[in-house]
């Protein structure tokens, strides 16, 4: 496969994870400007696990996801009482704190005559697990895409399940969800932790594909993009954020003749969609219509019932 295409597909995979994490929080009605923090934590933590501790990426994945879920859960608990704009600002502040902490952290050890570890704004390098194990870019892409397929599959399962509906009810009308017996606080903390773990997956793959990561990789723009992916693609299905990533990275960034105008086109796209499709291309109503169209094609609609007098 063409090298350029492999790197694009790997990037699409990696960034879809952070888009999905922002999407999960959007479902519960929260706009997080801080998911890049968990992407960054994922990149750094997994890099430390493989480059400094010498474990494999397969061991780093669960360890990193746990660490990210734990830190995201803490953020969720701290921000329990914050809603709307205040939650957004708090997550943004947290992400900037993480980024600045990474800039200010130097912790290197000598491994085989080389200094390895986070080195302030110089970042964390030598994340060579893929190289050391002779995993080609092509194979690495498949690892990312297969993991993405699994995560997407879990999202689809969740969206058909009652848990997915519970998340959506919280996002649609928090008070109503509460009066219906849903412990909103507990579900919000759980969603935040889960979203952190998902974002960290993107960071893990990003770090191991790039082999070198910098604190500046995890700045606000990454968070803004991850939010925009769901808002562009649509909040009606997990395919929405994927569609958003494909539009941005697969088209705006990858196709040569639009390259220079990427940010202009992206910003314009967000603005136009927010006006005409505030919940994205694949929003709940369109997804419902598609689902119903698909269902009636499979099975004949039930015969119309005779008019029920109690209905009037």
């Amino acid at each position: 496969m063409d090298e350029h295409l492999v790197s694009i597909l790997t990037n699409i995979g990696g960034f879809t994870f952070i888009a999905l994490s922002a999407y999960l929080l959007l479902l519960t009605g929260e706009i997080s400007f801080g998911q890049q923090a968990f992407f960054g934590i994922g990149a750094y933590f997994s890099g430390i696990v493989t480059a400094m501790w010498g474990l494999s990426m397969w061991a780093a994945i669960p360890l990193t996801m746990l660490a990210a879920a734990f830190s995201a859960g803490l953020v969720g608990i701290i921000t329990i009482r914050l809603r709307g704009l205040y939650f957004s600002i708090a997550t943004l502040a947290f992400a900037e704190m993480v980024r600045l902490a990474l800039v200010g952290t130097t912790w290197q050890v000598k491994i085989d005559g080389e200094m390895i570890g986070p080195n302030g704004s110089e970042g964390l390098g030598n994340i060579r697990w893929a190289l050391d194990n002779n995993i080609e870019a092509n194979d690495f892409m498949w690892i990312v895409l297969i993991t993405l397929a699994i995560v997407m599959g879990l999202f689809f399962l969740m969206e058909r399940s009652r848990l997915g509906s519970i998340f959506r009810t919280i996002g649609a009308d928090r008070l109503l969800a509460e009066t219906q017996g849903i412990n909103v606080t507990a579900y919000k903390v759980a969603a935040t932790a889960l979203a952190g773990a998902i974002a960290s997956l993107g960071g893990i793959f990003y770090a191991h594909a790039q082999t070198h990561v910098y604190p500046e990789n995890f700045d606000v723009m990454l968070g803004v993009h991850s939010l925009a992916y769901g808002l562009i693609g649509g909040l009606g299905t997990a395919l929405g954020p994927l569609l958003g990533v494909i539009l941005d990275i697969g088209f705006l960034e990858a196709v040569e003749w639009v390259q220079g105008y990427r940010m202009i086109a992206f910003g314009g796209l967000v603005a136009v969609l927010l006006i005409f499709m505030p919940r994205g291309i694949l929003d709940e109503r369109r997804v419902h219509r598609l689902r119903m169209a698909f269902r009636t094609r499979k099975t004949e609609p039930p015969p119309a019932k005779t008019h029920d007098p109690a209905a009037s």
Partner: peptide
């Protein structure tokens, strides 16, 4: 009236079963 407008009638009842 407060309903989950983007969910079907059936789903509205289904998610309310929290007794």
């Amino acid at each position: 009236i407060r309903l989950f407008n983007n969910m079907t009638v059936w789903e509205n009842l289904w998610v309310a079963q929290n007794s």
